[in-house]
């Protein structure tokens, strides 16, 4: 049970950074930390004691596998995380060229 709690603390650290930081790069880093905590939590839930990796071995009959479903979902989520990070970084560098700062409070022209 302690591993679940540590995962959740990692998530909370990311959430704290997301709310309190004002630097765009720090916000992107906090988002990716939250993503990491969710990945590890999903894989932890699918783990079985004494299970083997979900690849069918040659000579073993009726082995216990760990759950392949969360692993497939997390595999999808990792690549999506890379895509969102790259896109956010592109937006950040473009905003820096226009406003010469990463401070989200100084980027005011976006207000409607």
């Amino acid at each position: 049970m302690i591993v679940y709690i540590l995962c959740f603390i990692l998530f909370l650290v990311g959430l704290y950074g997301l709310i309190t930081r004002r630097n765009l790069i720090k916000i992107v880093i906090s988002l990716s930390i939250m993503e990491f905590s969710i990945f590890i939590l999903l894989v932890l839930i699918g783990y079985i004691d004494g299970g083997i990796a979900p690849i069918i071995p040659e000579n073993v009959t009726n082995p216990t596998y760990v759950d392949p479903l969360p692993q497939a979902m997390v595999l999808t989520a990792i690549v999506i995380g890379l895509a969102t990070t790259a896109m956010l970084m592109a937006i950040a560098i473009r905003l820096y060229r226009k406003y010469r700062t990463f401070d989200i409070r100084d980027i005011k022209n976006l207000k409607g």
């Binding site: 895509a83 790259a86 970084m89 592109a90 560098i93």
Partner: peptide, 16 residues
Amino acid sequence: EVAAALITIFLALIIY
């Protein structure tokens, strides 16, 4: 597709 997408993103950053 994944390889080409990642190289495209990287090249876009360098060209910028």
